[in-house]
Design a protein around this nucleic acid. Structure first.
Lengths: 171, 171
DNA sequence: CATTTTATGTCAGTCTTGTTGACATTTCAA
DNA sequence: TTGAAATGTCAACAAGACTGACATAAAATG
């Protein structure tokens, strides 16, 4: 059928990568439906305890970067301080998050999960990881590498840096 | 090294796939950051015209399945009819979407994009596809296959069926 | 030391998008 | 004819984002 570049068995060079509109649409829809699945399990746990996705995100990154400042969290989450503050306030009131005044700079507030906070984080993480693990197992290790490669390439420039910084220590 | 099932060249059996917590967390965060990038470009176009993501989703799937009924769209999008109706009403008022009474079953309403609607769809699709295309090009064809494999495995059972049904005609 | 900038918190109001519940209409099907 | 299905609509509510304005404490800078 194709008159150009016959007998290309494995990977064509990037310039010759065939990307039909249909393939791209499929990718877009895959993102949409997969993200629904991705959030479904934690959402259920959160609802039981009267929290939302916004709380999950805060908890996740406070766990990931213990002692992070409010400003840093603001940047990672990409929301306004008013929006984050509403979430943080309830987490602090409920004693899931603990605040420490900065030693060097006493304007800064450093955020940590309490034991209770870690409990919830673990529950959420387990639920979400379970699905991720199943998906990984089902797709195989090569697919996993490709999955992350595409996702990373899809991020905004500065967020990719943030993402990389979060993980480069343990690479 | 492996005592069981030797000489497995490509994918190790699922039980032997090493998945550290760190790898799983990385995948979770990749999804989070990538989804931000995924929606960033269309969001900007939508804001200029006074629409939101909900409008985008409706437009996308009406374009994808022209003549779809309200009920079908409801199922694909996974929202309540009241929520969808608010969005549809404005799209119909603005003449981006056209409604046809069903020929066979006159209770059904079939939805189509008008020329204006297709224009917006194209603009949104171009923006989103451009990023997807760049990501695909950057990651390479093998990565793309893996990307879709993992995403499909991450979907809820019934949504995966919906997703598959949307594309199987042109497979 | 005075001033400005930074980090944080807070109040008030708005918007989008989701929800539930109740009810009406038209049309098909039994 | 009666009931179920597909759709639309009203009202009320909640989460979570936004803007704008303002307050405080502490650091940094002149």
């Amino acid at each position: 059928m194709m008159s150009t570049t016959p007998t290309r068995s494995t990977a064509p060079p990037s310039a010759l990568l065939y990307l039909t509109d249909e393939q791209l649409r499929q990718g877009i829809e895959a993102m949409f439906f997969a993200y629904r699945g991705f959030t479904a399990d934690p959402d259920q746990i959160l609802e039981e305890r009267g929290y939302g996705r916004a709380h999950h995100r805060a908890i996740h990154f406070i766990n990931c970067v213990p002692g992070t400042t409010v400003n840093n969290l603001l940047h990672i989450l990409g929301v306004t301080k008013q929006s984050l503050n509403r979430v943080l306030r309830s987490l602090i009131e409920d004693k899931l998050v603990r605040v420490e005044v900065g030693q060097k700079d006493r304007r800064e507030r450093h955020l940590f999960l309490t034991a209770t906070g870690k409990e919830l984080e673990t529950a959420l993480s387990n639920a979400q990881s379970a699905r991720m693990r199943d998906a990984y197992r089902h797709a195989g290790p090569d697919a996993v590498a490709g999955f992350r490669k595409v996702l990373e390439a899809m991020m905004d420039e500065d967020l990719r840096k943030t993402y990389t910084a979060l993980h480069e220590r343990e690479a």
